[in-house]
Structures are given as structure tokens and as C-alpha cells.
Design a protein around this nucleic acid. Structure first.
Lengths: 170, 170
DNA sequence: ATCTGCGTTCAGTGCGGACTGAATACATCT
DNA sequence: AGATGTATTCAGTCCGCACTGAACGCAGAT
């Protein structure tokens, strides 16, 4: 692909792709996701799966799943090239959109499951309160109070993540 | 510790601690960090290392490092009990502070290292531009343009994370 | 219908990082 | 000073998860 490009230009390109991989990996998303996006982000024309596989030197399976992840977040979009049976992909260049659909969505999910667990704790605390003997009361009261604070904070976080003002700041 | 508490109360407590572990683990911070904080958060009095070790059933080393992590973020604070050589810990109950000092700080670091890598790419692109022959120019121009956009977004993120308005929303 | 060239799936592998246990360092008491 | 009870450190182990390779499914072409 980059046969006639100057060596140092190719180096800069690879460096950028590597940086993409490092970044996504540091966020626990895996290396190939970032590398794939970076590659597409730098490409002037749509790129097919096998080209990505060739340039990154990884398995087709990895790129396939990475590309799906990325298109789930609308970080890349499929492009059909007429007369070609391959799938081609190009990057969404608007980072703000990607954060909105990708990262923030992930965080929302995690916050949400945390909230579900809080609700379960609340339920089992109800049971505990019913059959409580005297020495339990103080402990139970503290747990209830702390649990309430946790729930309140959880709601505040939810509000923040849904706040249009946050997305406006991006 | 909870010998005279009702079974279902103890269950609620363990459930909360477990939820804490799940949450921190889902954010890639490890399970014990969240469990330790949750335990301290529910405790009416300061707790020493060995009590945490006993209740969580994990190694002393794990709890030791977890506790240090947590106090780095000011999520827990050391408390001295006079006449006792052990270290005691209690939780910071103000979640907002923890997010500020912990999670946001982590994200800032990651964003920062990403920025450093971008700078490196920019530098090697400078070299490439110097020795460029004609067919390279277009590709180089695109890379430069996209790199500029990436840098701009990086700065925007930095600004957002440093924005007092964000912390005010918490 | 068969063949050909794609993308996807899934059981298995390898690796990175959390966790452990023993050795170490440290503090306080006698 | 030594002794004792504590926290910390560090090499090693274990485990989850990203990644792989082969088998599969599914198109369109002939």
C-alpha cells in the first residue's frame, strides 16, 4: 500500500496507528480496535478487511470483530464499492460523535449495572429489617443511610451522563 | 465481626461489598479495591488491615496495595487509634471527592500520554515532509490534516477535564 | 446447481495483569 | 540492644480476556 511513500512518512503513519492501539488498550478496549480506527482515519479512500489484516499483521477474525465494534459506535461506516463483493470501511472523522456513541455509552452501561446491584442490596436490606433483633438495629440503620447516599450519588451520575450540557461541552 | 447480626442483614452487607468489587473490576481497577472501599464505607468505626483480610478472604498483600491506592485518591484515610500499633482506615463518604481525585485523574493521565504520542507523530511527520518527493505530498497532506484534527480534539478533551463546570456538575 | 470468494463464528491458545505467600523493612515495647 | 507485632515488597502463580486459525455460512458468479 505505501510502497512509493517516503520511509519517514510511513513511519509517522505507523506511529499514529500504534498510538491509537495503545490508547484503546489503556482504556481496556483492546489494541486492534484503536489500530483499525487509526488506519481508517488516515486513509483517503475506503479500505477492505484484507487490507487492514495485511497492514496490521493480525488475524482476520480480530479485524472482523473490531470493525463491528467500531460500527456499533458509528466510529466507522460500511461503504459499498459497486462491482466489488468486499466490504469497505471508512472512519467517522467527527470524534465528538464517537465519544457520544461509544465511550459514554459504555460508561452508562456500567453505571446502570451498578445501579441494578444497588437495588438488589436495598431489597435484601428490607428483608433484614423485618426480622431484626435489637442489636442489629444500629448497624442496619447505618447500612441503610450509607446505601441511600450511594443511591443518591448514582442518580447524580446518571443525570450528569444524560445532561445535554455535557455533550455540549464536547 | 458480624456474629450477632441477622443473617439477611449480613447478606445485604456482603452483597453491597460484592457490588463494589464488580463495579471497580468493570472499570479495570481490580476487584479488591472496590470490595475494600465498600467494606470501609459500611463500617461505623475504623477498620484495620487484618479485619479486612479476614472478611474478604484475600491476601494481606492485596489489601495493602488496595488501601494505598484508595488513600492516594483520598477515598480512604488512615486513622490512628491510640495505644494500638495497627493502622486503621475509614472511608471518605463524599463520592464527589473520590471521583475528582481518583477516576478523573486516571482519565487525565491516559489522555495525557495519548497527547505525548500525538506530539511524537507530529515530529516524525516534520521529518517526512522535508525529504518528500512529489507522489508523497497528497498523502502527507491528508495525514497532516487528520493529525491536526486529532490534536484539536485532544485539546478539547483536556479543556473539558479541567473545566470547573464539570466538577461543579458532580 | 456448483463453485468461488467473501465475512463470521467458535473452541483453543497465549499473554498481561491481578493476586498470592514468603521474605523484608519498620516501628514500638521491654 | 533484642523481641514482637505490624505493614510493605517482590518474585511467582493463576486467571480472565484479547487474539488466533480452522470450520462454517452466505452471497454472487459461472
Amino acid at each position: 500500500m505505501s510502497s512509493q511513500l517516503s520511509p519517514s512518512f510511513a513511519a509517522a503513519r505507523r506511529s499514529f496507528i500504534e498510538a491509537g492501539g495503545q490508547t484503546t488498550q489503556s482504556f481496556g478496549l483492546g489494541r486492534i480496535i484503536g489500530q483499525t480506527f487509526a488506519l481508517l482515519y488516515l486513509s483517503p479512500k475506503p479500505v477492505c478487511l484484507d487490507e487492514i489484516v495485511a497492514e496490521l499483521g493480525v488475524s482476520k477474525a480480530s479485524v472482523s470483530t473490531a470493525v463491528r465494534q467500531l460500527s456499533d459506535w458509528a466510529a466507522v461506516k460500511r461503504v459499498w464499492v459497486k462491482g466489488d463483493r468486499k466490504d469497505y470501511y471508512e472512519a467517522e472523522t467527527e470524534f465528538t460523535e464517537i465519544i457520544r456513541n461509544g465511550l459514554l455509552e459504555i460508561v452508562r452501561k456500567k453505571i446502570n449495572t451498578a445501579g441494578i446491584q444497588l437495588a438488589k442490596v436495598e431489597a435484601s436490606l428490607q428483608d433484614a429489617h423485618d426480622g431484626a433483633r435489637s442489636p442489629t438495629r444500629d448497624e442496619a440503620a447505618l447500612l441503610a443511610a450509607r446505601l441511600a447516599r450511594a443511591k443518591k450519588f448514582h442518580q447524580k451520575l446518571n443525570g450528569l451522563l444524560g445532561n445535554p450540557l455535557l455533550e455540549h461541552l464536547l
